[in-house]
């Protein structure tokens, strides 16, 4: 483990990692009654930014309007605090396992530029899709499945099924 740890290539056994992740998710439900998430914090960031630029526009919009209230700042949501924790936790793991490094990770067959163009495009689609489905892989799929939500299973199958097909379309970017 030590040599792997020194080169930053040590990872938890996937089943052990899965059990840890499942226990964190279970405790999240046990303490707070809700699951883990990620895209919701990004949504709060956008709502807060739009609200700061034009409060009137945000209040009138059928979408932002759902998340803007007079008594609370749009960034004051559970998921924003949770994502602050995610960033800190991942940083600590990166520090511990020697993986802190600024870099663009990409297949040797493509340029960094191409990788970044695909990354931003993928991000845009993920942003749109997560709002439509009212949650992403964490909030809708994983947390939904833990409490047997029908939506969780539908979203999980749609995400992984589509990604499986389209990964082969974009194969050149990856292998």
């Amino acid at each position: 483990m030590n040599s792997k740890k020194n080169t930053g290539t040590f990872y938890l056994n996937p089943y052990l990692g899965g059990v840890f992740l499942g226990l964190v998710l279970m405790m999240t439900f046990y303490f707070t009654g809700r699951g883990l998430g990620a895209s919701g914090a990004a949504k709060s960031t956008v709502v807060a930014a739009v609200n700061a630029v034009s409060h009137e526009h945000a209040e009138k919009s059928h979408y932002y309007g759902k998340f803007v209230t007079d008594d609370q700042h749009p960034m004051n949501t559970w998921l924003v605090f949770e994502v602050v924790g995610v960033l800190a936790g991942a940083f600590l793991s990166g520090l511990f396992f020697n993986r802190l490094k600024l870099k663009v990770e990409h297949s040797p067959k493509i340029t960094s530029r191409r990788r970044l163009i695909f990354a931003v495009s993928g991000g845009i689609l993920f942003g749109i899709g997560s709002q439509l489905a009212k949650g992403c892989t964490s909030g809708a799929a994983l947390s939904g499945m833990a409490v047997l939500s029908l939506a969780g299973f539908i979203t999980m199958m749609a995400i992984f099924g589509t990604a499986f097909i389209f990964a082969w379309v974009f194969k050149k970017n990856w292998i």
């Binding site: 995610v86 495009s121 993928g122």
Partner: peptide, 28 residues
């Protein structure tokens, strides 16, 4: 849920991350 999942799936295959994993990767 289906349409959103399909859009996310395409984004996943292009970007290689989902929101939670992208936050982790940003952190390192």
């Amino acid at each position: 849920a289906i349409v959103g999942g399909i859009v996310m799936g395409i984004g996943f295959s292009m970007g290689g991350y989902c929101p939670g994993t992208s936050f982790c990767a940003v952190a390192i």
